[in-house]
Design a protein around this nucleic acid. Structure first.
Lengths: 230, 230
DNA sequence: TGCTTTTATTGATATAAATCAATAAAAAAA
DNA sequence: TTTTTTTATTGATTTATATCAATAAAAGCA
């Protein structure tokens, strides 16, 4: 069974996000007020696109997926892993979530009321700058997605997705995917059939090995090349 | 000829961006230090993707286009009009520009050194929050682009582009486009031939009137419907 | 355990949009 | 002005990817 973390005080927190690294004890005290931890089962929704943005979530354990939902089909924006502070758009504008987040695995999330985070934002300019840096970096990420999704062909997109999981999520050339084929397809903004076909081709060419959700990148250079050439 | 604005002091500035509305005289004094105005001819580059982010540009006069350049083809991210503070990604991260900006018309740009803007950011929490709001809103904009460009068909994208110009840039159902067909295509991430074909179809169906770069939206409802249904 | 439902895979076909190609119009230069 | 260059337009063709359809495998449930 999953071990429940003891998590009473932000000052003693061993898994503090880099974003909170430079906060004073007093700042952390503010963050700690009304903070709480929630555990989710795989598949469960942490927050839904369109709902009120009341807490900032820090992902402590597990993986979650962030999905922009639209009439036509879902777009899987990114996968988040610990320790990540989930700062979506809406945080400083309309206080609504603009994507949905749901658990891919068992997840522990630390929930900090937005007004406390903003209180620290106002009293600590260095933190304000860190938060801006965070938002800035995420905006940059969506720029990259924009280029990838508008300019690469299915092969390039799927190859890029494999590199994304290998480099950023699982940090290994062999990994067990926590998402379905459909979700992989949503990440690449293609149909699941197309995503599967590309996987099969990469497999047939000996560039990757697949068994169910276990994937190993064999020819990393080639996958990188396919990703880059689109 | 173009009248040159007298622009010596931010305190007296009549065309101040909402972003600077809540600054004290002292804050404005800081912004004003080493601030300068540059005029550009149509087609000229204000800054290039990959170059150093040294100044924040406030667009005072004219229109400019922001383009993400990539190996395959350009993606026209947005068109900016006065009075807009151009806050691209990189501002709080790597201090590089991540898109290129160039003048579509005659342009006057007010250039504020980044370190002065950041100085005010640090001393004035309300301004810091305003800046974050700005970045947040822009991130939201790129979310919308992401959805549009991945999910709408060419008809929907071109229709949306027409609404974009009508609602946000020219604020009229009739307008003279300051961009070429190729640039319109880059905005929609389609080929210019496809963009032209859609324009022709919309024209043939009597939904718009086109003569060269003069466009008038006749059946606004229908264009909106096409934009929404993709 | 077998039964049901969901997810994955593969093939055949359709289609949206790109590419290629040629001409026309407009803008810039001589 | 005429010439040259760039931009716009239209048609014919190709192609990448979606859609449709059918089966297989896996997962959840009785």
């Amino acid at each position: 069974m999953h071990k429940v973390r003891e998590c009473h005080n932000c000052n003693d927190c061993e898994i503090k996000s880099p974003l909170f690294q430079h906060l004073s004890n007093e700042d952390l005290e503010i963050m700690n007020r009304e903070r709480f931890v929630v555990r989710y089962q795989p598949g469960e929704l942490l927050f839904k696109q369109g709902s009120s943005y009341t807490h900032v979530i820090v992902l402590i354990t597990g993986l979650l997926k962030c999905t922009i939902e639209s009439a036509a089909r879902d777009l899987l924006l990114n996968v988040a892993k610990p320790v990540e502070v989930i700062t979506g758009p809406g945080l400083f504008t309309d206080l609504k979530h603009h994507y949905s987040a749901s658990a891919l695995t068992h997840v522990e999330a630390c929930c900090i009321p937005l007004n406390h985070l903003k209180e620290v934002f106002r009293r600590n300019p260095a933190f304000a700058e860190d938060v801006s840096r965070e938002i800035d970096a995420r905006r940059l990420f969506s720029f990259q997605r924009l280029v990838t999704l508008t300019q690469k062909h299915v092969h390039g997109r799927v190859a890029e997705a494999l590199l994304y999981f290998s480099n950023h999520i699982y940090e290994s050339q062999a990994f067990q995917l926590d998402i379905s084929r459909q979700e992989l397809a949503d990440l690449c903004s293609v149909t699941k059939e197309s995503a599967i076909r590309v996987l099969k081709e990469l497999k047939d060419e000996g560039l990757i090995v697949i068994e169910g959700n276990n994937i190993e990148i064999i020819d990393y250079q080639m996958i990188e090349k396919i990703s880059n050439l689109g």
